[in-house]
């Protein structure tokens, strides 16, 4: 299916063609659902939040000025909706060491990481995403997976650019520590 610019469908919806909204839902549903899942870690909750976010976006579509990208505006709705949902149901939070990894150690971790098999890297990613804080999970997904700029991430989350940068840095440190522990465990298993 060929998609036109988001603005084309937004205009149609505002002109009363509600069905045009389905194009926007189809285009963004995977990313919206992924982000919700990253924060809530539960498919049912994530699906509910993703649906709520799309309905909220529809209700406020006339307020969308087009100053930012539609995706940025939509992801901000996903973020706030997921935060509200999380406040209602408190989830288990893991305590992960975020101490800075030394340069030499970091280089060693990198070397061993690149020797890991594809399946092992995937397995480690699943562990990381399961254990990171929900908002850190959201931030690193936007930064490393969607490759969003810090400015855009700040707009989505309502954080300042510096605050977003610090949070991403801390998340990266946690991930490096987790990787260090994971590699140690793998090594012990091998021996």
């Amino acid at each position: 299916m060929e998609y036109k610019e988001d603005g084309h469908y937004i205009k149609k919806v505002l002109d009363g063609e509600t069905n045009a909204y389905a194009f926007l839902v189809n285009k963004y549903k995977s990313m919206v659902f992924s982000l919700a899942l990253r924060m809530l870690r539960n498919r049912e909750d994530a699906e509910e939040v993703a649906q709520d976010a799309f309905v909220k976006a529809y209700q406020s579509l006339s307020q969308f000025r087009g100053g930012a990208r539609f995706s940025t505006w939509l992801y901000r709705i996903v973020y706030t909706t997921a935060i509200s949902k999380m406040r209602r149901s408190s989830k288990e939070v893991y305590s992960i060491n975020d101490a800075e990894v030394e340069e030499k150690e970091s280089a060693e971790i990198s070397d061993v990481y690149y020797q890991l098999k594809e399946s092992e890297r995937k397995k480690f990613l699943d562990i990381v995403l399961e254990k990171l804080d929900p908002d850190e999970n959201f931030l690193v997904t936007l930064y490393y997976y969607k490759e969003k700029e810090l400015d855009e991430i700040a707009q989505i989350t309502g954080l300042t650019k510096n605050n977003a940068k610090v949070k991403i840095f801390r998340a990266r440190q946690k991930m490096m520590n987790m990787l260090k522990n994971y590699l140690k465990e793998e090594l012990i298993e091998l021996l």
Binding site: A22, V25, T141
Partner: peptide, 23 residues
């Protein structure tokens, strides 16, 4: 390293009836 790691992240799809339910 992180970018390499996240490039392994698979796209997670919601249920098949997601769009219908939203609409």
């Amino acid at each position: 390293l992180m970018r390499d790691l996240f490039s392994r992240q698979e796209v997670v799809e919601p249920s098949a009836s997601f769009t219908e339910r939203v609409m």
